[in-house]
């Protein structure tokens, strides 16, 4: 028996395979197992609900993760997407069923934005439904796949059905767009994507965050919390999300109602004869008085608006009065 790799095929292939397997154990299996066993879910986080789990299954089946990462790196460039991801963020992930493995949510490509903390940026379910029905209805220039098959068209929607107020240019000719169970599950999952604060760590300054290049604090809060519905140009989405440009409340001399709406949200608004079905979420827990003052000022002085500005003290006073 020759101990020469060139002549002994058992030795050659045995050595090649054994080396590979040994390296595999060291570089893949042991670290994977170590990570799995030494990571706990973050305190304050919760497991997905049954509906959110179904939504995650759709997220995986439709291949959302090929274009959207859920992985915020500890780099300045990733700041707009939230705080850096921690191992605990993924600790609850398990195989979907006996056929499928743990979803690969971290992703490797960002054709679209990171979704780790998307629910903080896009908390409106209406926005998410419209965006899934046709992304271009709410984001000009988006190249995302539209998912009309997650919706149904009804001549007369039944009671309890989720009607999606698609802007006229993108709406079907006849009937109303309603969200199927699948769409509701997927949106429930997307709205669950909200980063849990790290224990002891500060919630990084406006995690939901603004592009670092934004000029004023107000513009940066607006970009992070308001622009997805009201538009970065303040023009909203016709018939769905009201414009800020020339809005009677935003341009009113008395800022009290403007501040109140930002703090406590609003339902069933009728503005200039248009009924807006989408609900405006409250921001009292997410934004400080200073941030709300900054964003209110930004809205009152941009896009041709020129209304009196406010201070953090004004916001604090209205916050104290309570609402809604």
């Amino acid at each position: 028996m020759s101990l020469n790799f060139h002549e002994n095929h058992r030795l050659l292939y045995g050595a090649a395979l054994a080396t590979f397997v040994a390296l595999t154990v060291v570089i893949a299996i042991v670290p994977a197992r170590w990570v799995q066993e030494h990571t706990e879910p973050l305190s304050g986080s919760r497991a997905l609900t049954e509906q959110e789990r179904r939504g995650l299954a759709i997220y995986v089946a439709e291949g959302c993760l090929y274009c959207h990462t859920q992985q915020v790196r500890p780099l300045p460039v990733d700041k707009p997407f939230g705080r850096p991801s921690a191992p605990g963020d993924y600790a609850r992930l398990r195989p979907q069923d006996v056929w499928r493995m743990t979803p690969a949510l971290l992703g490797t490509e960002r054709t679209g934005p990171d979704l780790s903390n998307v629910a903080a940026r896009q908390p409106s379910d209406t926005w998410n439904y419209i965006h899934l029905y046709n992304p271009r209805a709410v984001v000009k220039g988006s190249v995302m796949q539209a998912y009309p098959w997650l919706f149904a068209i009804r001549e007369t929607p039944g009671p309890g059905e989720v009607i999606v107020p698609v802007p006229p240019d993108y709406a079907p000719r006849g009937g109303k767009v309603v969200a199927t169970q699948a769409a509701q599950d997927l949106v429930a999952y997307l709205l669950s994507l909200k980063q849990t604060p790290l224990p002891g760590g500060e919630l990084p300054e406006q995690a939901a965050g603004a592009p670092s290049g934004a000029v004023t604090p107000g513009a940066s809060v607006y970009a992070a919390h308001c622009a997805s519905c009201h538009g970065s140009n303040g023009e909203g989405v016709p018939g769905v999300f009201p414009p800020m440009k020339g809005d009677p409340v935003v341009t009113a001399a008395d800022p009290a109602r403007h501040i109140h709406i930002v703090l406590f949200g609003l339902e069933h608004a009728a503005i200039n004869g248009v009924n807006y079905a989408a609900e405006m979420p409250a921001h009292k827990d997410e934004l400080s008085d200073g941030e709300i003052a900054a964003v209110v000022d930004h809205e009152r002085t941009s896009w041709g608006n020129s209304a009196p500005t406010v201070t953090a003290a004004d916001v604090a006073r209205i916050r104290k009065q309570g609402g809604p």
Partner: peptide
């Protein structure tokens, strides 16, 4: 060896999956 390693589930919960991926 690679395919077997990649498809065995016992070390692929949470970030374990990412290490293997």
């Amino acid at each position: 060896a690679l395919v077997v390693t990649a498809y065995l589930p016992w070390y692929q919960n949470g970030l374990g999956e990412t290490v293997i991926q």
